[in-house]
Simulated assay, not measured.
Amino acid sequence: MTSMSVFDIVPEDVLDAIFLRTPALDLVLNCPLVCRRWFEALSGRYFWLQKIESEGMRISERNRQLLLDNSDYSLCIYILKGVACGLLPFNRNLIRNPCGEDGRKYWVQKEAHKRHADYDSDSDEDEDYDDQYSAVRFEVEEKPVGAYPIPDKVGVPTQHCFVTSYRLGIRVQVLNFSKYSIREGVMELLKPTINYSQWVSSRHDCGCEAELSIQVKSGLWTMKPDPLDWNTSQEGVERRVWYKMEDEVQCALPIDTIVYRSTGKDRQFWAGNYGSKTTACSLILKI
């Protein structure tokens, strides 16, 4: 009679419950080596969908069915494991320092971006660029001065926000997708939606404006959606109140870079930081 190990007698539902509470990287790197049964359990597409959803991430019904039914098993399991482990750039905010809690870190001003076309937002030189080019264009407030506190619905853990002045303030992050080494066919299969947004407000005593835009590059192809504009003269806009600027576009091509660009200034040319305030900057590739 063949002897059974403890790994063989654990019920299937109990094993799944344990795996759903195990860090995804351990499930990929270590657990499949324990025994054949664990290897087979962790090779199923449906389990990885469950794992993703147990972490609070949502996948559209279209892509859910594609990942379960597509004939290319290798590509689908690669996507599912990559999303679960956070190794692929999907369903999470790719903007770093979105509220200014870390000062101007990871943000560059427009002139710096022009002069450094191959700029990588992960570079250790971020703060040097910021100090040289952006100090007079935008600042960071620990809490909004002259505006209402950032409401809970914005979903940020801090009251920090960026604030502009009488000169046009321009913040840029260049997201370089080469570091993810995304396999061929992933973007074509998933056709992710690029969702980009920020929250904006103004002081009670000074009119201001803000603009949000992105630029997507894939080889020689470039997509530049129309910018989103906001100002205190628009109908229905109340000073001090926080508003969400948001749009989305679909992209089915491999992405090289996305440039996220936020600009703003006051409309009364007052000395000091009386321009638009922004926080919760976000760019998400939704699948």
Rank of each mutant, 00 (worst) to 15 (best):
T2L: 12
S5A: 12
I9K: 10
E12S: 15
D13S: 13
L20Q: 14
L20I: 14
L20A: 12
L27F: 07
L27K: 03
V28S: 04
L33T: 11
V34C: 09
C35H: 05
R36I: 05
R37C: 08
W38H: 09
W38T: 05
Y46C: 00
F47K: 01
W48D: 02
W48Q: 02
Q50E: 04
I52C: 01
I52W: 01
G56L: 11
I59W: 08
L67F: 04
S74R: 13
S74G: 06
L80N: 05
K81H: 09
A84W: 06
C85I: 11
G86Y: 11
G86Q: 07
L87R: 07
L87Q: 10
L88F: 02
P89C: 09
R92V: 11
N93R: 05
N93I: 12
L94Y: 02
N97D: 06
N97C: 05
C99P: 00
G100R: 08
E101F: 09
G103L: 05
G103Q: 05
G103M: 03
R104A: 09
R104L: 04
W107Q: 04
V108A: 08
V108M: 08
D120C: 10
S121M: 14
D122T: 13
D126P: 00
Q132F: 11
V136D: 15
R137K: 12
R137T: 12
E141R: 09
K143W: 12
P144R: 05
P144I: 12
Y148K: 15
P151I: 12
P151A: 10
V154R: 00
G155T: 06
H160C: 15
F162A: 15
V163D: 09
T164Q: 07
Y166M: 03
Y166S: 02
R167N: 13
R167D: 11
L168D: 12
L168M: 14
L168H: 08
F177L: 13
S178H: 11
Y180Q: 07
M187C: 11
M187V: 13
E188S: 10
L189I: 10
L190V: 15
L190F: 11
K191L: 04
I194C: 07
N195H: 07
Y196T: 09
Q198F: 02
S202Q: 00
S202P: 00
R203H: 07
H204K: 07
D205S: 10
D205H: 02
C206Y: 00
E209H: 01
E209D: 04
L212H: 10
I214E: 04
S218Y: 06
G219T: 08
W221D: 02
K224Q: 06
K224H: 01
D226L: 09
P227Y: 06
P227M: 11
W230E: 08
E235A: 13
E235S: 13
V237A: 03
V237M: 06
R240I: 06
V241E: 08
W242I: 05
W242Q: 03
K244P: 01
K244H: 05
K244W: 02
M245L: 15
E248S: 15
E248Q: 14
V249E: 05
C251N: 13
A252W: 08
L253F: 11
D256F: 06
T257M: 03
I258A: 05
Y260T: 03
Y260D: 07
R261C: 13
G264S: 03
R267E: 06
F269D: 04
A271T: 10
N273L: 04
A280I: 03
I284D: 06
L285P: 02
I287L: 14
